[in-house]
Amino acid sequence: MTAIIPDHLVLAVLPEYPPVAESIAYQLSGLLVVLLALGGIWLMLETIGALFRRSDGEAKSRAAAPTDSPSVVEPRIEPVDVANEPISPSLTHALIAGTVHAAFQGRARIMGVAAVPSPEVQAIIAAAVHSIFDGRARIVAVKPLNTDTSWAREGRRDIFVSHRVR
């Protein structure tokens, strides 16, 4: 819909070559319009944001409040301390495989992992561990397995335990 603006609503009408004073006044009123528009939006957003923060706070406090019927107990998530625990070979293998799969969108296949991991593999392991443990784990050492057959055995064990065997 086209709005017809009455003449008295036009903020300023300048001649083609306005005097400096008139030009400055025109600029100031323009800057004021921009400040009013964006300042008005700022105030509205602050108000709306405050309402949302308040409702979020209430929802959180309701969730944190103790209930009379403790039939359903929410599992408490504790930080995982894996700094001194060796990561199982199957987990390491899965981490590397998952990260490589994601990075190469399934176009790469892992042929093997060198006995001493290259810096690239170490970086992949570090990124994967960081992603999975959300920064709560620190890699102290990466220990390669003794023999290649261990990888194969771990893979078979993984597949085996992932299916119900009758």
Binding site: Y17, P18, V20, S23, I24, Y26, Q27, L28, G30, L31, V34, L35, A37, L38, G39, I41, W42, L45, E46, G49
Partner: peptide, 26 residues
């Protein structure tokens, strides 16, 4: 911008060049 709406004022202030250049061009 929604998370920190006061930065709207920065967007408004950065229009200063428009109006100053207007006078320069004139």
């Amino acid at each position: 911008l929604i998370a920190m709406p006061r930065t709207l004022l920065l967007g408004a202030a950065a229009q200063l060049g428009l109006f100053i250049t207007f006078m320069g061009a004139n």
